[in-house]
């Protein structure tokens, strides 16, 4: 299925400069104006696609229960996450949901869109992170400082891009970033990990990540890849119509949870075809600059290397000049 994000809400990641990785972390909550509209006023998304995205989230969790998994010691952190997520979501979207947290070991939650009416207790809730994931459009991850490293000790994620959150359960932050080019040599993983370890409750920060994707599937995980057409098929499709290639944006938010200090990582995914993005002339120009200049290894990591030529030709054919 595809839940396309219209340009007026799209979190445009480029600024007219060539793209390289860096720790592009900033405080959360500030709205960003883009050439097409704006984004970033809230941590959680509850827009017109929300009901559809939640329905897909629930369907994937039903079909693939291991998409929500946690190590046994994470129950307190999961409860901490559930209360934080519900409270923040209700504050950001009071017309969609309400959360009553007067007693910290109990949460009452009503969601007018999903129809959920929950009365949850700390000790009586088996997988709090999975419960939270049923109500929000974001993938949820918990990092815990264990044996000297931050480790991914709980996940509830159905919309990840070309990795496997189920495989990664229990891995260190550094090990699970193993396959990303350019991250390690620069000391950036170590630096990012130091940053995360220094986060304090109450601070919420965000960063954007982007990649290219030939289909409109939110679930682009390694776990779902066997259901996709073959690589060659996908490539042929993009070559035939480069405007169908999607720019995939991850809006990542990070905070340290108040009762346990565990790090909550949320990822909201946006997917929009190039054909729609290039209707904003400034974006077309910036995309052409970034994609023409991107080094080969980075292009491969962003799933774009083998279609670079046709995509660039497409972008220049859409140039206003």
């Amino acid at each position: 299925m595809s839940a396309e994000t219209p340009p007026h809400r799209f979190a445009w990641p480029f600024d007219g400069q060539p793209y390289r990785f860096f720790t592009n972390v900033e405080p959360a909550g500030a709205e960003v104006r883009t050439a097409g509209g704006s984004w970033g006023a809230t941590v959680f998304q509850a827009d017109e696609a929300y009901p559809e995205v939640i329905a897909e989230r629930r369907e994937i969790l039903r079909r693939r229960p291991r998409a929500a998994a946690a190590l046994p010691h994470m129950h307190a952190a999961e409860w901490d996450a559930l209360t934080w997520v519900f409270e923040r979501f209700a504050a950001e979207h009071p017309r969609v949901a309400t959360a009553d947290l007067t007693d910290p070991s109990r949460v009452r939650w009503r969601n007018t869109v999903t129809g959920s009416e929950l009365d949850l207790t700390q000790d009586g809730t088996a997988h709090p992170l999975a419960v939270a994931a049923h109500e929000v459009a974001e993938d949820l991850f918990l990092l815990d400082l264990r044996d000297g490293a931050l480790r991914l000790d709980a996940v509830a994620a159905t919309f990840v891009a070309s990795w496997s959150s189920t495989f990664s359960l229990g891995m260190s932050f550094s090990d699970l970033h193993g396959p990303i080019p350019r991250l390690h040599g620069s000391g950036m993983v170590a630096r990012t990990e130091r940053f995360l370890r220094a986060l304090q409750p109450g601070e919420v920060v965000r960063r954007l990540n982007w990649s290219m994707q030939p289909t409109g599937d939110l679930d682009a995980s390694v776990d779902a890849r066997h259901t996709w057409p073959g690589e060659d098929d996908l490539r042929r499709r993009v070559v035939a119509d480069p405007g169908t290639l999607r720019l995939r944006i991850e809006i990542q938010h990070l905070t340290a949870l108040p009762a346990t200090g565990a790090i909550l990582f949320t990822i909201a995914t946006q997917l929009t075809p190039l054909a729609r993005l290039v209707t904003v002339p400034e974006w077309r120009d910036q995309l052409e600059l970034v994609l023409s200049e991107l080094p080969e290894d980075m292009a491969a990591y962003k799933s774009f290397a083998d279609v670079r030529e046709p995509v660039l030709a497409y972008l220049s054919s859409r140039s206003a000049s």
């Binding site: 390289r20 990303i180 350019r182």
Partner: peptide, 14 residues
């Protein structure tokens, strides 16, 4: 902004 041009391949986890 510090440039980052460490060559691929990245460190693998084996």
């Amino acid at each position: 902004m510090r440039g980052d041009d460490t060559p691929f391949p990245a460190r693998l986890t084996v």
